[in-house]
Design a protein around this nucleic acid. Structure first.
Lengths: 341, 341
DNA sequence: CTGAAAGCGCTTACAG
DNA sequence: CTGAAAGCGCTTACAG
């Protein structure tokens, strides 16, 4: 019943057995230079034998680095966050640090913020949307001095790392694509208004319509929340219109999938009677049928870049604080070419 | 450029300003009893004013608790893990501890295991499949004395917490459901052989077939890996058969979605010409069209139970080490009733 | 109900 | 290239 819990070896154990001081052992594990090869070898040998690793808690307390990076999300679900997670976890592994995930469901949750920021010392914190635009969070992070990276931010914060794509341009091009396929009555489903990209995407749509001399009707722009369910609701509105759109641009793929489902239930053929496009190239986009034409954004690459920049901030030389990433129009089967009719 | 990083207040700051010893402050923050109400009030007041929270790193080093729980996964993606994550993150928040996620891609990765287990002191570790059956991991965890919970484990380990559903029975009932709908030629797509549930589900299928006097043909059982792509491959095999199945039971919903897509591409009508059922009630199940009939397992409830049990292990009284959860047959639109023909 | 002392396992800042 | 001392911010084990 009472299994002996083998106590971990400590740095001083290693030092003693290797016949050196703790400081020298510390040097080896922190990859500092100025350790003679033979001592280094001996230390590594003893450490291996004792199965020694420096304690995260002890280093975090004693030193200036914590080997912990934080990822703050509003919701840990969904394909988008999965990609972010996967990418960051890979990076953490390769540099030997660890990821702590924290959930901030509502905006400006100061209690949670203090709880987290005052108790854990992070080497860096990465913020996904919409938290990356929560000024309460940003200010607290700034006050605490933790290097911070923001993925797809909206509000200005020039002191923090940011990665993004040109949301406006991507939506503009997608809309132009639809127009190029002969569509004129194009509906638009907005994203969650809490996400700054929602407005950018909407403006891209509007601008493209205007640029091509097409009328932007209010009834053609309906609200959405980035969820499948909200996509379904949007579809109900759009399909109830007297003059139905021939194409709908949903601000993300989940909503596009919801629209697709409703269309099918109502016997509206996609893409023949209704073309549908999304945004993100979420896993769902290639899965539904017809597969969704969408805007692919390189989420993993972006999250990786955010990590690299924010963890490199302390280095000497000029620091890179911002990177803009490319997007691709991913053409699949959900758009009809009206020009061939 | 050089913003003053406001140094966090420490417990001794609070003690000094409140006119008590550190130990008393410590008592308050650890909710120990035997602190007079007035001192407690004063301490809380000062702490609030100083915005004080006990340091995770310091408590972890000094005390027996670390306030860190680990979640080990083989892949952080997918709806299943998202649910696990969400559930555990909720629990962590409510008891004031933090989640560290670690990825173990291959089995028996001793290097990573030592790295993680020797450097971080966890209060508990939660293992998802298939890591929960990796004996190297289990032994290391046992040796380190960290309370461990396993979600849907296969191999025996009576000293560890486990949560599960009756995979065999669920697959049995789903197969019986298909048989009850008049199907006799029922194909089966296996899951990833690394997951113990795969074999259980297959056995449930086989047993149900036998129980109802139906022939289990080898060609009707095809391999799969729980991925959408492997579902597609399985569909190619099954649909190329001279005697096609009238129904296919995929070991999870992602594969079922892949089968559905291939069927549609080949002009095979679902469910009229081919019924398809899955397992998990993954987000994708309700999203595809027709919506998939599937087995719903209460993943969040299971993960929550795992957390509660493993964190309660230290308590006095008998500890609950195992919980079995209910599943539901979730009937949607992907099965044809052959009896009405 | 309260507190003084020691110690957790490292890194820092120095000194050599 | 190497090391001795102090200290990080708490909890533990005692003593009262």
């Amino acid at each position: 019943m009472s299994i002996v819990k083998t106590k971990n070896a400590t740095m001083s154990d290693v030092a003693r057995l290797a016949g050196v001081s703790m400081k020298t052992v510390s040097r080896v594990f922190n990859k500092e230079k100025y350790v003679s090869e033979d001592k280094k070898k001996k230390i590594l040998e003893v450490a291996e034998q004792l199965n020694f690793r420096p304690s995260l808690q002890a280093r975090g307390l004693a030193g200036s680095k914590s080997y912990i990076v934080g990822l703050f999300v509003d919701d840990p679900s969904g394909d988008y966050i999965s990609k972010v997670l996967r990418s960051i976890l890979n990076r953490c592994e390769s540099i030997g640090c660890h990821l702590v995930v924290e959930v901030f469901r509502e905006r400006g949750n100061e209690a949670k913020l203090r709880q987290v920021l005052n108790s854990i010392r992070f080497d860096a914190v990465i913020l996904s949307a919409p938290i990356c635009d929560d000024t309460v969070v940003l200010n607290a992070l700034r006050a605490s001095g933790v290097p911070t990276a923001r993925i797809a931010p909206g509000v200005q914060a020039d002191d923090m790392v940011r990665v993004s794509i040109d949301e406006f341009q991507a939506a503009f091009e997608m809309t132009e694509y639809l127009i190029g396929m002969g569509h004129e009555r194009i509906g638009f489903v907005k994203g969650d208004p809490n996400h700054s990209c929602s407005l950018d995407r909407e403006r891209g749509y509007v601008r493209a319509m205007q640029t091509h001399g097409l009328r932007v009707k209010n009834e053609m722009i309906v609200p959405g929340l980035f969820s499948y369910a909200s996509g379904r609701q949007a579809a109900e509105l759009l399909l109830a219109l007297e003059e139905r759109p021939t194409a709908v641009f949903a601000s993300n793929d989940e909503m596009a999938a919801g629209i697709l489902a409703v269309a099918r239930e109502k016997g509206v053929r996609v893409p023949d009677e209704l073309s549908i496009v999304g945004f993100d190239d979420d896993a769902i986009a290639a899965t539904v049928s017809p597969a969704l034409t969408t805007v692919r954004q390189p989420v993993e690459e972006m999250a990786g870049a955010a990590f690299d920049m924010v963890m490199g901030e302390d280095g000497e030389g000029e620091k890179i604080l911002s990177s803009s990433h490319g997007f691709t129009l991913c053409v699949r089967d959900s758009v009809a070419d009206l020009r061939v009719r």
